[in-house]
């Protein structure tokens, strides 16, 4: 990683003004997306979703159904894109992989003792290896928030770098669990640490802690990605996860993405929504756009 030769001092990452961030976010939310740009946006959102199930009660049956949905979003409407990936626990990777053969939909696995990350280094490595051996295309790891808040930034950095080494070609998403980081300054710091340690994506949340993804948090991370890109010429992806369940909100994220990082990031190679119920809302909106009438959720499969 070329970037490592110019490692910054993570104790002095750029500061963030929270009120300024909120004002900027408010501007994004006033954009009015209508007509053809709305349709185009909705399809893009659909294609950026990491359809997710991360529950203790997950079974192969549940995962198989979700994987079918991932590829057949709503067959009544032709030419719909698939989602980007499904996101499951390591134990479900094998099932998901088999269900998605030939679909182009990727399998992402959470890892490193998700969601708390409270385990040993060895177990986290094993956890990741297990997911990869079962066919995971992408790894969603969690950082050690305790160590981070203690100021043990080297620990956090080394852990990410170690997992990235294990990942090889598989893309690594690094989850900060921003709901536990307390300040936007910390979100920025975590972003810088993760990117310089080799993250391919940075991701807000596990979905297990509230607040999960918010627009201000995501904006801070997008701006970190932008600065990192200018400093290293390497693109890093962004994944807000949890709490984004309506297409209106997702569209505002898309506006924010477009106006912060520009066109190069406007695909599922560089941007994902970690969500479970968002997909159906997007489908309902697309159906409304094509049929002209408001929809009922009874007509959309809940998997």
């Amino acid at each position: 990683m070329a970037a490592k030769s110019i490692l910054p001092d993570f104790r002095i990452t750029p500061t963030i003004d929270q009120v300024g961030i909120e004002e900027r976010v408010a501007r994004f939310t006033t954009r009015s997306i209508k007509k053809e740009s709305k349709m185009q946006g909705l399809k893009m959102i659909l294609n950026m979703i990491d359809l997710t199930t991360l529950e203790g009660k997950d079974t192969e049956g549940k995962v198989k159904q979700m994987c079918y949905k991932a590829v057949h979003m709503h067959d009544v409407i032709p030419d719909l894109p698939t989602v980007a990936a499904v996101c499951v626990y390591p134990s479900m990777v094998k099932t998901a992989k088999e269900s998605l053969i030939g679909s182009g939909v990727k399998v992402a696995s959470v890892s490193t003792a998700f969601p708390s990350g409270q385990s040993t280094h060895e177990i986290k490595i094993l956890d990741t290896k297990f997911a990869l051996e079962n066919g995971a295309d992408e790894i969603d790891m969690v950082i050690s928030r305790g160590e981070f808040l203690k100021g043990n930034y080297n620990f956090v950095f080394d852990e990410i770098a170690a997992i990235k080494d294990v990942c090889g070609k598989a893309r690594l998403k690094v989850i900060f669990e921003t709901g536990e980081l307390s300040t936007l300054d910390n979100v920025r710091k975590a972003s810088d640490i993760a990117m310089y340690a080799g993250a391919d994506f940075i991701k807000t949340s596990t979905g297990k802690i509230s607040p999960a993804a918010t627009m201000p948090v995501t904006l801070v991370m997008l701006e970190a990605i932008r600065d990192y890109y200018y400093a290293t010429n390497r693109m890093v992806g962004m994944k807000p996860a949890g709490g984004i369940s309506t297409s209106k909100l997702a569209m505002q994220y898309l506006v924010m993405l477009r106006e912060t990082l520009g066109g190069a990031w406007l695909s599922n190679e560089w941007f994902r929504f970690g969500a479970s119920s968002l997909a159906n809302d997007v489908l309902m909106q697309i159906a409304k756009q094509t049929t002209g009438v408001y929809q009922s959720s009874d007509y959309f499969s809940k998997d």
């Binding site: 003004d17 929270q18 009120v19 300024g20 709901g179 300040t183 936007l184 607040p211 918010t214 201000p216 948090v217």
Partner: peptide, 13 residues
């Protein structure tokens, strides 16, 4: 000067 909301009823940051 801006004032940050920390842990307020606004739902944190």
């Amino acid at each position: 000067h801006p004032v940050e909301n920390i842990g307020s009823s606004k739902g944190g940051y």
